[in-house]
Amino acid sequence: MSTQNILEKHAPERHNILMILHDLQDHHPQNYLTEEALEATARYLKLTKASVYGVAGYYTMFSLKPRGRHIIRVCVSAVCELKKSESVIAHLESTLGIKTGQTTPCGLFTLELSECIGQCHEAPSMMIGQAVYNNLDAERIREVIESIRNQG
């Protein structure tokens, strides 16, 4: 879907900007907002580029840099930390061969951290894309990553 087609799904009103930015980012194979997308949004909403950039830069779910096809978000909030989220991060880093904040060279995964994702009863938890994974241990992490790798 072209940038223009995505924009036109939403009324050209400022209050739709977060919905538009989500839509643009979700449709980009590298999960980010390109400069071209931000400029097109500014034109569409009749806002300055600076104010669109200001909004995109404020909210942590938006990325202004290319990322992997699948965004892994490891919850590092209090309960998950209590349930050893640091070993979840360590397992992911070694399985993927990258550090937190990086993208795998194949472009499949980006490893990020997240505040509470509301899965505290089954901590430690992470999200990959839209899916939630709970009660994580080394084996479960390896299974999940392998199954996504096999799907490509």
């Binding site: 209050h15 977060l18 930015l21 404020y58 779910m61």
Partner: peptide, 25 residues
């Protein structure tokens, strides 16, 4: 439905209104 984008602060009611209007939180 309106979506947030990863800001805890937007759960505060006045900040939420800013965000709903399409502004920084």
């Amino acid at each position: 439905i309106k979506l947030g984008a990863g800001s805890y602060l937007c759960g505060e009611e006045l900040t939420m209104l800013e965000s709903l209007e399409g502004k920084r939180g």
